[in-house]
Design a protein around this nucleic acid. Structure first.
Lengths: 148, 148
DNA sequence: CTATCTGCAAACCGTTTGCAGCGTT
DNA sequence: AACGCTGCAAACGGTTTGCAGATAG
């Protein structure tokens, strides 16, 4: 996948070095359609780079996040997960069962935001919209929650 | 304020006891129009009840939150703040400078959510919408950020 | 060869839990 | 008097930092 090389080149352009651990993490993040916690990334990336340390995962995700290639997803319990960044103005739809994530666009919040600004006197800087639901795979699971 | 008594009565109805620390925290939460962190609550409530312990703040906020009188507000850094709960279906507008909060209603996400459900195959369970901005007081502050 | 990156261990910070004593009812 | 609540101290879990050795360029 050329996208992996693109990320690594951007990293290099920034003066960073391309190393085994970083390559493994980038490969994972480029390809995953699930939001992943640092520990998820650690576990999965160890398959490709067994000496991987958890600290390196944190540091690399931080860098990718600063570069705008990856974004932090906020969980209701306060933990963070990471996901390939949106392209342009997109919002997130996340499966509350398995963490599968999809971006969507076409929210029309402009009118609402304008009204709220006018009524409240706030100058609105940004908005945060996220939908929670069940993906196709997980819908049957939750309908019969007797699985536990 | 009768609202304070209402909260305390609800607490009593649930089998809870009305104590000094709880009264101080309830008074604070009923009256505050800012989202407050547990430490904020601790500091401010100590004015009314000097022996207050931070643990009691956590435990009381947890109870008020379970009762639906207070809600957790998620911060981008993963920390939690607490705020008097919304009435019905309202969303939050928060000042990114001072934390002043206001609820608004009248979002019309129904159409959007229906479309996304159809296109993605997800069954959407809930949504999470929050606007960040600057309140009237803080707008001049940020225009001249030399204050630091 | 040099600067960056890595992994370990330890520090850190917000939050939760165990427990003995106190206060409400 | 009985039970719930409180505060302290200690545990906890996710995240960050200090450091010496490894490695990319």
């Amino acid at each position: 996948m050329a996208e992996i090389e693109r990320w690594l080149e951007l990293l290099e352009d920034k003066g960073g070095r391309i190393t085994g651990p970083r390559r493994a993490i980038v490969e994972l993040m480029v390809n995953s359609d699930h939001a992943l916690s640092p520990v998820d990334v650690f576990d999965q990336a160890r398959g490709k780079y067994p000496k991987m340390g958890l600290v390196t995962v944190y540091r690399t995700l931080e860098i990718l996040s600063e570069m705008g290639l990856v974004e932090r997803v906020h969980q209701s319990d306060g933990c963070h997960m990471y996901l390939r960044a949106a392209q342009g103005h997109e919002h997130l739809l996340i499966c509350s069962c398995c963490g599968k994530a999809a971006y969507f666009s076409g929210d029309d919040l402009g009118t609402l935001i304008e009204r709220i600004s006018r009524e409240s006197g706030f100058s609105v800087q940004s908005h945060w919209l996220q939908l929670q639901g069940l993906c196709q795979k997980c819908q049957p699971v939750k309908i019969h929650p007797s699985v536990s």
